[in-house]
Structures are given as C-alpha cells and as structure tokens.
Amino acid sequence: MSTLMQFLVYGLQLGSVYALLAIGYTMVYGIVGMINFAHGDFLMIGALSTFFLSQAFSSFAVNGTYSGLIVALIIFVAMVGTGLIGVSVEAIAYKPLRNRPKMSALITAVGVSMFLENFPRALPFIGPSPRSFPMLFPAKRFQIQGVMISTTQIIMIVLSLVFMFILYNVVNRTKIGRQMRACSMDKDAAQLMGININRVISITFFVGAALAAASGIFYASIYPQVDVYMGGWLGTKSFIAAVIGGIGDIRGAMLGGFIMGITEILATSVNSNLGYAIGFVILILILLFKPAGIMGKLTIDKV
C-alpha cells in the first residue's frame, strides 16, 4: 500500500509537468484550431532561461541554494519571458497563415520547432550539450506513513494545482475568459461582439507558453538536466495527454496530464520500456472507445 502511495506521489509530480504542458496544446487548439508542434519547445526555453537566470543570480545563492524570494523572481521572469516568446512566435509564424489551409500552419509549426531547438543550439553560449539544472527548491524530505515526499514534490504539485485553479477560474469567470470561450466557438461572431481576436490569441499563446515554462522548470527540478531538445518528447507525451483528456478542453488537459504521469510511473515500476509505451496504449484505447477524449465532445468539423 505504501509503495502504491509512493508511486502516486511520483506520478502526481510527473503528471503536473505533463498537465501544465498539455494545457498549452489544448488552449491553442481550442482557440486557434491548430496543433502547435513547437509548444514543447516553450518548455525547453523556460528551463534553459531559468538555468541562465539562476547563473545571473548566482551571487545571491548561499551554498548553492537560493532564497524563496529569488526563486520566485527567477520563475516569474522565466515564465513571462517565455510567454512573450510564445506571443512572438504566433505573431511572426502563425498569424500570417491564419486563413490558410490548416496543413500550412501544421508544417510551419514543425519548422518553428526545428528553429527553436537549433537556433539556441547554434549559439555559442548555449550549444547542444546538456547542463545541470540548479536546485531551486529546498531538498528536505519527509516520511509520512512510510511514504517519502520531498519539499520539491510538494511545491511542484501544489504550485501546478494553483496555476490550474487560477487558469480555470480566469477562463470561466472573467471577461477575457469569456472572450476566449467565444473565440473558440465562433471567431466571426466573436468579432461581431467587438472582440479583438488577435489580442485573445496573443493572450492564449502567452498563457500557454508561460505554463510550459513552469512545466519545464518543474521537470528540470526532478531530472536536473536541460538541453535544447528536451521539449521534443515531453511535448509529444503532453500532446497525447491533451488528446486523452479531450483536446480543446482545459480540464481534460489537466486530467490527461495526471493520468499520463501516474500511469507512466506505475508502468515503469513494472518494466521501464512499458513506461515509454503506456501513453500510446492509453491513447489507442481512448481513441477506440471515446474518440473525442475523456472530456471532449465529438463535434463535426466544419471546413
């Protein structure tokens, strides 16, 4: 029983990474109608920029650990910076293609992803080699009824739940949230309500990329290594999580992320190869039995 609980802790921790990343896929899909294949790279940008920021702040570190205030500042700057990069990517690469066939945007997104990975790789001060990520969170561990849990894990899980709670309420209870939901249903009608859809789309990319940055910081706090390619397969898994939950639905992305995290940890404990495959197995099962995903409603795509 306590082993199972232990796996659950790890699963929630990994799940919070997937969930935060999956939200961006689902929001962009819901509002713009495209799959942003470069979304995983925002995670990498968040993690890498945190690495450099913490180097810049290294004089504030005592014995390699930072005060809570500095960590909060670093995370904040990394999230906002990555958010702005997300906004720029949309404005430069996707916006000009908005009224073109969906395939153009998809291909562009693949190109953007290659650029975001290989441009920093070519920069001399970044390069291809992995870096070891700093300890941002205190490494205290507690034992509760035979289950080990660290401060990092608690902070990660709680913080990601807080982010998701805020996001959910913004989307469902505020004016900008209502504008987002309107845009996701009918962009023409939204404009006829005086909504500036460019602004709504920019905000969507900002939020998605900022949450991806948080996800990257969290991931690197579990597996403290960052490099320019880390966004690739994490992005793929989170995209699968978003599809499992029902792409376009924010609660679905959160749920899908946690399902992915927990099942991956459980499967890995049985066999490490199974850990890699389990996401795809669940995806196939979901697509067979509930093609629109757990939360998704099947809608006819009007072309």
Partner: peptide, 24 residues
C-alpha cells in the same frame, strides 16, 4: 451585425451570450 444562421455561442449560457454583446 446579426449574422446569417444566428451564430449564437452554443456552449455559453444565454446570459453569457448577452454579456458578450456588451463586450465593448
């Protein structure tokens, strides 16, 4: 502009639709 085919926001409530009318 009241568009052809009405184009109400189907998954928003009546009140939310009206509030969007007052968006500006």
């Amino acid at each position: 502009h009241v568009p052809e085919g009405r184009r109400v926001f189907p998954r928003l409530t009546v009140k939310e639709n009206l509030m969007l009318g007052a968006n500006i």
